[in-house]
């Protein structure tokens, strides 16, 4: 018997039309294929107590993993922040040196460094 591929073609194209229903009425092969391929199952019923226990256990198991996960993401965040800040500072310093070289002594860091140095100096002098 030559096999009919009408149903197969229709489901592969995700088509469910009147044409298919009409075809299914007349074609035994496609009816058989349909009953073989479609399983409208309800999942296996597990006892409620079992599921509740399993979920509780999952929470207990997840706790240390989550803590470790949070710890590592904090570490990664801090590391990325440090790298970014050092990249920015280095590039500013390079820019600063270039400015100093080309414009003679004008420092970008002066507004920040002068007060800091003066505080340090005062403290050292006071001692």
């Amino acid at each position: 018997m030559k096999s009919c591929s009408f149903y197969e073609t229709m489901i592969l194209n995700e088509e469910t039309s009147d044409k298919l229903n009409e075809h299914l009425k007349n074609c035994i092969q496609c009816q058989q294929l349909q009953s073989l391929m479609r399983f409208e199952t309800t999942e296996i019923k597990l006892p409620d107590a079992f599921i509740e226990d399993a979920v509780k256990e999952a929470f207990i198991k997840a706790e240390p993993i989550k803590r470790r996960h949070d710890f590592f993401s904090t570490i990664v965040f801090i590391a990325v922040a440090i790298i970014l800040v050092s990249i920015i500072i280095t590039s500013l310093m390079i820019q600063d040196q270039l400015l100093k070289y080309y414009f003679g002594g004008v420092s970008l860091f002066m507004p920040f460094t002068v007060p800091v140095f003066s505080i340090i100096r005062k403290k050292v002098v006071m001692k």
């Binding site: 999942e43 597990l46 979920v55 198991k61």
Partner: peptide, 28 residues
């Protein structure tokens, strides 16, 4: 959603014990 996941793992593994372990991993 536990039963849906368990049913799926069961069909994949065809073994209730392994399916339970894997479902637990999914939950975690």
């Amino acid at each position: 959603h536990y039963e849906i996941v368990y049913g799926y793992m069961l069909k994949l593994t065809l073994n209730p014990e392994v399916a339970k372990d894997l479902t637990q991993e999914v939950m975690v």
